[in-house]
Write a protein that binds this DNA or RNA. Sequence first.
DNA 1: CCCCATGTTGTAGG
DNA 2: TCCTACAACATGGG
Length: 261
Amino acid sequence: MPELPEVETFKKYFDRTTLNKRILSIEEVDSFLLEDDQDVQAFTRSLKEKIFTGSGRHGKYLLLELQGPKYLILHFGMTGFLKSLENSHHIPDHTRLLLRLDNSYLAFVNARRLGKIFLCDDISLFLQKKKLGPDALSIDKTEFIGRVSKRKKPIKSALMDQSMIAGIGNLYADEILFQTSVHPLSLCTTLERESYNRMFKKTKYVLNTAIAKHAKIGKYPETWLLPHRTKEDCCPLCKGKMEVIKIAGRTTYFCSERQKI
DNA sequence: CCCCATGTTGTAGG
DNA sequence: TCCTACAACATGGG
């Protein structure tokens, strides 16, 4: 689930359920997800008794601020979500981190274990270390075009490159290019200024709309690609057949009628 | 059993 | 050196 709109939705869920609460104990932690085999004891010690004082997000990373100041950073990989529980009776399967709070629990669920748990006290250092570009919702037009247009690779690869822009993944890249009417294999250097202007606007629109719909694909407009992103379905705008190809190892859907090279 | 999956990263090659 | 492509990773579901 977790591209930028999903992670933003998790952030809002965290704010509703867990912000300003104190961590009483760490009930479970999967050390496999801790960065660099960090020591579980040390990890536990730095969380215990701390209060969550804020939250943020950069790209697909959820930043949870603790007294200290210090940050607990969660990355969901290809699967996962947060779940707040009233008690410890029905802990979700594949819970990799379980925090006991004042009067609730917070579970970080991550079936495929491709997620990661980090602790850090300097966010900008962390972003640097992860080589993350500006967040897709904060970046301005000049920087967006400046960063992407010089790449010598397909536009879809560039949109998904977290060091260019942080937050866009496989699904939303397909949606943005569909709405921009740009072929996903177009080389960045060959696209016109006008295409980039449209792409920039559509990036903001798609991500903001997805967040407003709580990242539920079923709630997205019928004219979007995502509700029709299956091999059986067809283009919602021209009813043409959807093309399915691989780009950068990822399955890519597009309309061959509307998205020409 | 086989293939696929909303992601990142180390490494190979140009 | 800088950039791009891609296998590998871990696990569940169809």
